[in-house]
């Protein structure tokens, strides 16, 4: 491949091509007026492009291996999460938080400014119609683009630091980090990696007719954990015996619990107020501790 040599034709054909000059859909472009030496796309130029590609590929694979793709916990509409779009939407996300881009001005925010910006970008060749190609001789087009770049970088950085700040303030850890931590803790205890997927097999209530069930209703537990123990604003208590033993459940009843998804207040006094004796509460805790997924 490459230049054929002696031919006087403007376009030099290569190898055994039997297509006559000017035939076919795509005529090879003529670069003879450009400075320097052109070279064949395959294999000469593609090899060079591939070398650049390999450098990128190695960096890409190092990133992939060192930073596993994040995964949080299954979607739960009642979870309290700081919503975060992917990083390349952050600038739009941040922009829409400003008062002149939200509320009464939401149309300006969602349609006006982004519409003009993206519309302008889409139609750039029809707006900037001069012959001049060098960016420093096209001050208006270049200035608009540079200004947009600066604002995108600023807004993205602002949104990200704000998010980090929110995390620090509320003490919330991103779920993808919590999942990794949970898996590491299990590994250190010698347990298999826990699955966070929603259980499709329903855990049954153990000893449904036990006196504990009566106490559970009486002590207003059902207002948060629901009459079927599946949970409402509080978590499901089906299979809770797998997580806590009787003593731990008693402590939670007496002292409440601070969890990542919300807090449970101490319920001991409420239970007493509802007419439960210490013995009843003790039995309630025992009954709850028997709520194991594997029990018959």
């Amino acid at each position: 491949m490459g230049h054929g040599g002696k031919s006087n034709e403007k376009v030099v054909f290569v190898g055994d091509s039997r297509v006559r000059k000017g035939n076919g859909f795509i005529t090879p472009p003529d670069y003879t007026s450009y400075p320097g030496k052109s070279e064949a796309f395959i294999p000469n130029f593609l090899l060079k492009e591939w070398m650049v590609g390999v450098v990128v590929l190695v960096g890409f694979l190092v990133l992939t291996i060192s930073e596993p793709a994040p995964l949080g916990f299954p979607a739960n509409p009642t979870a309290s999460v700081i919503p975060m779009p992917d990083w390349y939407f952050l600038f739009l996300y941040q922009y829409l938080k400003y008062p002149y881009a939200s509320g009464d001005f939401i149309v300006l925010g969602t349609l006006g400014v982004p519409g003009v910006a993206f519309g302008g970008l889409l139609l750039a060749p029809f707006l900037d119609r001069g012959k001049e190609r060098r960016f420093y001789r096209r001050p208006i087009a270049s200035a608009i683009m540079l200004l947009s770049l600066v604002s995108i970088v600023y807004l993205t950085n602002f949104a990200w630091t704000h998010y980090k700040h929110e995390l620090a303030k509320t003490g919330i850890k991103p779920e993808e980090e919590r999942r990794i931590e949970k898996a590491r803790e299990a590994r250190e205890k010698g347990l298999p990696a826990p699955s966070n997927a929603v259980q499709t097999k329903e855990v049954a209530i153990v000893d449904k007719d036990d006196a504990g069930m009566e106490s559970f209703k009486k002590a207003t537990c059902i207002s948060c954990h629901a009459a079927d123990l599946k949970g409402a604003s509080g978590p499901s208590l089906r299979g809770v015996g797998d997580k806590h033993d009787k003593a731990a459940i008693l402590t939670i009843i007496k002292e409440g619990k601070k969890g990542p998804d919300g807090n449970m207040p101490p319920m001991y006094d409420t239970a007493k107020g509802a007419g439960l004796s210490d013995q009843d509460i003790d039995h309630l805790a025992e009954w709850l501790s028997k709520q194991k997924a594997e029990a018959k």
């Binding site: 091509s17 297509v19 795509i26 090879p28 320097g36």
Partner: peptide, 22 residues
Amino acid sequence: DITPIWRDVADHEVPEHVNPAH
């Protein structure tokens, strides 16, 4: 007669000013 297709896809020159080797 696949040679013309091959030529359309692959057989063309690339100028020097876009060549990172130069």
